[in-house]
Design a protein around this nucleic acid. Structure first.
Lengths: 327, 327
DNA sequence: TTCGACGACTAGAGCGCGCTAGTTCTACCG
DNA sequence: CGGTAGAACTAGCGCGCTCTAGTCGTCGAA
């Protein structure tokens, strides 16, 4: 910075003014400073810049590496943060790098707020964290004190899936659930409410899970239990494709023999093989709201924690259709 | 820091000594300082710490968000960086956040070195960057001046795939290539060398690409062109599953009618449907080497750029088998 | 007793910025 | 010509840490 100032024949303060783009310098000088900086390959050191500022305008984000949905969220967060003139500091979690470590890293950077994507932290840990720094839990519900929540309305999502099948004319629906996974309760509830509400109850749910194997296991049970239901709402896309694989090996076709709805609109749902009708979470809205809540809470930490539900939407593909009347 | 020092009844310098874990404090005092810090919820501010240190011991990493292979690499990089007592600063690229932006962000943090995962930067841009800061290109070849390269030996990888099929007894092999993608040339070469070397030449290659659609298009051409080859080596897993989908719709089975080998060992290769035999890149070795080269070059920027090739391995699954002699 | 060595600890400069409280310079008015 | 407003610019402290060059005190050897 000193070099740039010297080369442009001004003081360091002037260089600072130019790079912060604030009033206090003539156009002519601005040009001269910028030219000098370009020649010297100078760009302000962000660490030093943040150090002398009360607010860092940096949002810390923890996410699971390799989690497609988190990657989508991050893309949205980059956009949303830029819109609020903030930056992102990323800290990934993996098998041998847990969330505590990721959070500690971000705290050492003195982020203004923390956005935890699908956090696995317990409520006490979350509450403790929220006492130190504004925390927004994204895509995960919690009642931890002081933690803002931004997530998809899973009750509505599962209901959307169920109603889609009901509208197509399916009478025998089954929900392959997510067991104890985050959001599984809400999805069970949404499915049941939709089915019961349409007078097609009682709603039938069978144990599932998050993985392909979970879906495959559920498919095996359904095939063994007698006549296959014509409509299946599965906890997520991954479980759905595991299920579909077993059904296909048993000679069942979609949408002719069975209609299947997934959840998440992950890449596999788009595959030519599955063409999976699925519930899409509004990633952009989630990201925008998460950043907004974080920024708001930085401004004013006082208000009680709030929860934002974002409406999901249905993406109809080839895995669903009217039931074959001949069967 | 001042608060902690006061509470422990020592100077700030002592607190620094304790937290840097360097000699110069008695065990007794260390304990007292740490206790005081814990009570006050103090952790050193990394920005300030780095600011006053010549070397930051931070490695900047650019990666493509949502790219499974990059996520795997990052997990390895976290491990490798920790082993060298370094930290990682992540900067993702997306559709509307390009690599230049990601790199500028990292430079503003004054990282010691940059690791670019599958960089799309041109050679001039890379060379320019390398003149400013040590740069390691990971999973991507380049001859840009001053840029170290760490990547998989794609020639060997494609040869591995071809030899696997040859060993199984396949006589008619075709390589569905990656067009102009990074690594496509090497894989073509490896395939051709293996086939020619086994006296089963001339090697046949057909145009492919990176996506499912590319693979599907290639499959359509192969089906139309006459008798289907019994062994296919495809540029990557994604293209392979697109191809397999079309083959399946045409009534072909694997491994009975056709054996298919992919590349990358991505999650889709593990799917129950595809069970794709594939070439796995040694992510851990790539990550370890990348960090090592970066750290070395920070120590001593002088030596000429070097290129490290990491040996890939074959993961055999259900998509390959001996050719059916009855056909 | 003196001296040096060594462990424990501290003062204070400096890292690269932002920001406040100035100073200087220019233009214009009465 | 003095006075003044406002634009252009600068001096210097402080952000939270590291690190060098010390000081102080203790102990053992000459």
């Amino acid at each position: 910075m000193t070099d740039v100032a010297e080369r442009a024949g001004v003081s360091r303060a002037l260089v600072s003014i130019v790079f912060r783009d604030v009033p206090g310098a003539s156009e002519q000088t601005r040009a001269r400073v910028k030219a000098a900086a370009a020649e010297l390959g100078y760009a302000p050191d962000r660490r030093a810049r943040l150090l002398s500022r009360r607010r860092t305008r940096v949002l810390g984000v923890t996410f699971a590496l390799g989690h497609e949905f988190h990657a989508d969220l991050l893309a949205g967060l980059y956009r949303a943060a830029a819109a609020h003139d903030h930056e992102l500091a990323l800290s990934g979690t993996t098998g041998d790098r847990d969330e505590d470590e990721a959070v500690a890293d971000l705290l050492a950077l003195r982020c203004d707020a923390l956005l935890l994507l699908g956090s696995a932290l317990g409520e006490p840990a979350l509450a403790r964290l929220a006492a130190t720094v504004p925390v927004v839990a994204v895509a995960r519900g919690t009642r931890a004190a002081g933690v803002d929540v931004v997530r998809t309305d899973d009750v509505a999502g599962a209901a959307l899936a169920a109603r889609h099948l009901l509208d197509l004319g399916h009478a025998r629906l089954v929900h392959v659930d997510g067991g104890a996974a985050a959001g599984a309760d809400e999805r069970r509830r949404g499915f049941a409410t939709a089915v019961d509400g349409a007078g097609r109850g009682p709603a039938v749910t069978t144990g599932g899970g998050l993985t392909e194997d979970d879906g495959a296991a559920a498919a095996g049970r359904l095939l063994a239990e007698g006549p296959l239901p014509t409509g299946l709402v599965v906890f997520n896309d991954q479980s759905a494709v595991g299920l579909m694989d077993v059904l296909q090996q048993a000679g069942r076709r979609w949408p002719e023999d069975v209609s299947v709805v997934g959840y998440d609109d992950s890449p596999v749902a788009r595959s030519r093989w599955a063409r999976l009708t699925t519930v899409r979470q509004d990633v952009d809205a989630l990201a925008r709201l998460a950043v907004l809540r974080a920024v708001e809470r930085v401004e004013d930490p006082a208000p009680p924690a709030r929860e934002d539900l974002v409406a999901p939407s249905l993406v109809v593909r080839g895995s669903t259709g009217p039931p074959d009347p001949s069967r």
